[in-house]
């Protein structure tokens, strides 16, 4: 149902590192799960729409009022790397690295 390259593609979309062993284990597990959940296709849903939310709430909004923000120190306290008041991240390196 799902093959190795499917799993690799999806892992890439999810930016999720998987070892070869992990992929080996996942392929059959996911196939079985997908087979089980795929049974829904046989259910007749022609008369109903999708439910995104079970509560009947609508128009939940707030007034446009600015409130004090977090201090910069609190915002960056858990940052892996910072440089002064900014957060540091790596860039996408050139292909062939």
């Amino acid at each position: 149902m799902i093959n190795r390259s499917d799993v690799e593609h999806v892992a890439r979309l999810a930016r999720l590192g998987l070892t070869d062993e992990e992929i080996d284990r996942l392929v059959p597990q996911l196939s079985r799960i997908l087979e089980a959940v795929g049974k829904l296709s046989a259910v007749d849903t022609s008369s109903v729409g999708p439910t995104a939310q079970v509560i009947a709430l609508e128009n939940v909004m707030r007034d446009d009022v600015a409130r004090p923000s977090m201090s910069r120190e609190a915002a960056l306290a858990e940052a892996p790397i910072r440089e002064g008041g900014l957060l540091r991240v790596p860039v996408v390196l050139e292909e062939g690295r």
């Binding site: 440089e83 957060l87 540091r88």
Partner: peptide, 14 residues
């Protein structure tokens, strides 16, 4: 806002 930081890294202002 993502800005160029230096060689190989960027800086973020949220």
């Amino acid at each position: 806002r993502l800005q160029h930081g230096g060689r190989g890294y960027s800086l973020l202002d949220f």
